[in-house]
Amino acid sequence: MARKAAKTLAARNTQTLNRTLIITAAVHAVFLLLRGLLFRRSFTTRSLTLYLVLSAPSLIIQFWFERIGRPTYGAAPGEFRRSGEDLEAKGLTEWMWDVLYWTYICLGFAAVLGDWAWWSWAAVPAYSAWLAYTTFVGARQGMAGMAGAGGEGGDSARSKRQQKMEKRGGQRMQYH
């Protein structure tokens, strides 16, 4: 059974990586064709530098996905070695997919609207900073909640059931 799951993951990864490779090649080709042929006057060295610098993270991510996600096979036909990492994992992998997709969008904007559209790429670090901030605040609140759980015997330390029983005059609990 475990080999079946690994083979399913390998097939899914291969399909995802092949599709992503085609999309990446198409988006970059469209950008270069539009900027190089239709908007030739505005395609300067500065434009090319912006393109190379701001599309580099997506190309690095693409290479990383190929490295960790592409299944490996042995020398013998049909010999399966490794399925690769799950490319649908949450967390960092999910964030990297977001960066990849947002770069596609920015390439489209920059191809049609010009170099000033690269400013939309600033959403990536802004989004990352927001995620880091909300994670930090959530962790800090979680730690504060754990510290307050063993409180001094106030109402927040008692369960609703205990509070109802004490309200009715039932069994009183002693808190130390």
Rank of each mutant, 00 (worst) to 15 (best):
L17H: 08
G74F: 04
G91P: 00
T103F: 04
R3Q: 14
G145E: 10
S42Y: 02
L17Y: 07
W97T: 02
L59G: 13
D86Y: 07
G69W: 04
R168V: 11
G108C: 05
S128P: 00
A126M: 13
Q163V: 08
T135L: 11
W64C: 07
Q62D: 09
R12K: 14
E85V: 05
S120T: 13
R81I: 15
L87T: 10
A6P: 00
L32R: 08
Y175P: 02
L9Q: 15
A75S: 12
K160H: 07
R161M: 09
A126Q: 01
A75Y: 06
A129S: 12
T135A: 10
R12F: 13
V27C: 07
V124G: 03
P125C: 03
V137I: 14
R40P: 03
F136T: 06
G169V: 07
Y175E: 12
A147G: 06
G36M: 05
F80C: 04
G169K: 10
M173Q: 12
T103S: 10
R3C: 07
P77H: 05
K7T: 08
A10L: 02
K160T: 00
Q162W: 05
A2I: 08
W119H: 10
A5I: 07
T24D: 05
R82G: 00
A117R: 05
C106K: 03
F43V: 01
H176A: 14
R172A: 07
R41F: 08
I22D: 02
F31G: 02
L17R: 03
V124L: 11
R168D: 15
Y175T: 10
R35L: 09
G91E: 00
R140L: 12
I23T: 12
T14I: 03
G84V: 02
F31Q: 06
I105C: 00
T134G: 01
M165S: 14
Q171I: 07
A147D: 12
D155C: 02
G169C: 06
Y175C: 11
G154V: 02
A111R: 01
Q163M: 12
V137K: 14
K7M: 15
G108N: 00
W95L: 15
R172N: 07
A89Y: 08
L32Y: 08
E88I: 04
L37V: 14
R70D: 02
W97M: 05
G74V: 04
A139C: 11
S47Y: 06
T93F: 11
Q15P: 00
R46I: 09
T14S: 13
D86L: 08
R35I: 14
Q162R: 10
Y101L: 12
W119V: 13
E166L: 06
G154N: 05
R81A: 09
G78E: 11
A26M: 10
G108I: 02
G138S: 12
G84Y: 00
V112D: 01
D155H: 06
T72V: 07
R19I: 12
K90P: 01
W102H: 02
A157E: 14
R40Q: 11
I61W: 00
T8G: 06
K167D: 14
R81S: 09
P77L: 07
